[in-house]
């Protein structure tokens, strides 16, 4: 839709399945999004995997770029930086704290940049220069926002 709420346009339809978490490419010509099972309600177990897709910002040229079978993927806002790297999170099913990954827009070169280890991370977002991410780091009794430089 337009930023004033007018001009609603469907980019995906029922036949595309459950699509969510859109994020524009840096140049605005494409959108990366999640296709697959909706997130489970709190307290229930996620049992279905999902995939990462891209399309033109007009809904054209839908293409699966990532989906590794028994995994659950998360896309957040500002996921696509000026160097054409897409930031996402991935975990296996049954769910464990997801790791942070980057990949190219065609799905190639997927690499872990932050292993969840003993922490729970969430909501990573690129800075304007595309060389750092801000991310939530959760610990036992609190969560805080951190900045991480990426090579």
């Amino acid at each position: 839709m337009n930023s004033d709420g007018s001009g609603n346009t469907n980019l995906t339809s029922v036949s595309d399945g459950y699509c969510s978490w859109p994020s524009y490419s840096y140049d605005g010509t494409k959108i990366v999004y999640i296709k697959g099972e909706s997130p489970s309600a709190p307290g229930t177990e996620q049992t279905s995997s999902n995939e990462i897709w891209t399309m033109g910002s007009d809904g054209s040229s839908k293409q699966k770029i990532y989906g590794e079978g028994n995994t659950y993927n998360l896309i957040f806002q500002r996921a696509w930086n000026s160097s054409d790297k897409i930031l996402f999170m991935r975990t296996a099913i049954p769910l464990s704290p997801p790791d942070v990954w980057v990949m190219s827009p065609d799905g190639s070169g997927a690499t872990v940049v932050l292993d969840s280890d003993s922490y729970t991370y969430g909501d990573p977002v690129w800075n304007n220069a595309g060389d750092k991410i801000a991310i939530i780091k959760g610990e036992e009794t609190s969560q805080n926002v951190f900045i991480l430089s990426l090579p």
């Binding site: 839709m1 337009n2 930023s3 980019l11 699509c19 969510s20 978490w21 859109p22 994020s23 524009y24 840096y26 140049d27 605005g28 959108i31 910002s57 806002q77 500002r78």
Partner: peptide
């Protein structure tokens, strides 16, 4: 609607 995301030129908002 949920998951709003601005286009880089600020004219559009993609959402689910």
């Amino acid at each position: 609607g949920d998951n709003p995301a601005w286009s880089p030129d600020g004219t559009k908002i993609a959402y689910a």
